[in-house]
């Protein structure tokens, strides 16, 4: 989500994951962030390191809308990062104003929580992310996979079946033309069909019932998948945010939907994870992927 202020609004968490009692921890590259909701339910992001004795603030609790460290109870305001309380100080004693922790800009929209990654703060209201806006995305999840982010993104173009699944749908590696690159994205289309008795779609089909379109952003690592039929009607879609975690892992935060009103969608299970973003990866399958559309991605980058 590049914006005018030279920064990125990276979706780093799901709205559902963030509560007003205990914080969660998210690692975004070298940044360790504690996320919680303040007294009015607004999401706040603080550096996950107490300035007192370096304990992760994400181990603490939210008390009256502020984040209290688990070790000695120093308490921090989510919007400014200011330390508002050091327990046992007398009424006359004030916490020095320089006692604070880094506070990061966050924005919540359509089930995603975005963290601003720019050096300078985002400009006021013009700079809001638009990822997944206006979509109804009732399916969601987040996983961490043991694969570096750049490798994950390339594998997603060459063989998405190694990383994600839509129940009963088989993605083929018959790419429909070359990838299209425009406006900071690369778009790849491939045929997809039903999995029958555990078998992938036949190589010999005259036509396939679906096309999987994958749109991958160069800038912020978001990926959108759209599965549509021969009438160009969307059957399922997945919005994924992919960003580097610690130790060369990749964080994935995603939301999606399946159009169960579609005539064919009955074959996609409503109960058995209609959309599955794999947390356990088949290393051999990924290693053996042949280079396809990812070559254009690398060129474009």
């Amino acid at each position: 989500m590049k914006t005018a202020s030279k920064g990125i609004w990276q979706p780093i968490a799901l709205s559902e994951s963030i509560g007003s009692e205990v914080p969660i921890r998210v690692c975004y590259e070298a940044k360790e962030v504690a996320l919680f909701r303040d007294g009015i339910g607004k999401v706040r992001a603080l550096k996950d390191r107490c300035p007192h004795r370096r304990v992760p603030l994400s181990l603490g609790k939210v008390i009256e809308g502020e984040l209290r460290c688990a070790y000695h109870g120093w308490t921090f305001d989510g919007s400014s990062g200011a330390c508002t309380q050091i327990p046992n100080l007398s009424d006359e004693e004030k916490v020095p104003s320089r006692y604070k922790v880094d506070a990061y800009s966050v924005h919540e929209d359509n089930g995603f929580v975005f963290l601003w990654s720019g050096q300078n703060p985002p400009s006021k209201d013009g700079d809001k992310p638009v990822f997944a806006a206006n979509e109804d995305l009732p399916l969601y999840g987040n996983v961490i996979v043991p694969l570096a982010t750049s490798a994950y993104r390339l594998a997603m173009l060459d063989g998405p079946e190694t990383l994600i699944g839509i129940h009963n749908i088989g993605f083929t590696d018959f790419f429909l033309g070359d990838p299209v690159t425009r406006d900071g994205i690369i778009q790849v289309e491939r045929n997809a069909g039903w999995i029958r008795r555990g078998k992938p779609p036949s190589k010999w089909a005259t036509d396939y019932p679906f096309i999987l379109r994958t749109i991958s952003s160069f800038e912020d690592g978001t990926i959108i998948h759209q599965l549509f039929d021969d009438k160009e009607q969307i059957v399922a879609q997945i919005y994924m945010s992919i960003f580097p975690g610690t130790r060369s892992t990749t964080n994935i935060v995603w939301r999606g939907n399946v159009n169960f009103n579609h005539k064919d969608a009955g074959k996609i299970s409503r109960t058995k994870a209609p959309i599955d973003i794999f947390s356990h990866l088949d290393g051999e399958a990924i290693a053996n992927l042949l280079v396809g559309p990812s070559s254009q991605f690398q060129e474009a980058v």
């Binding site: 300035p51 007192h52 370096r54 046992n88």
Partner: peptide
Amino acid sequence: NYVMRPQNPRYLEPSPVRDMHSRF
């Protein structure tokens, strides 16, 4: 250990940011 376990790795190298203290 709940706090010291994650605390220890943060003291392995000198930090550019010094610890803050209270009179306690």
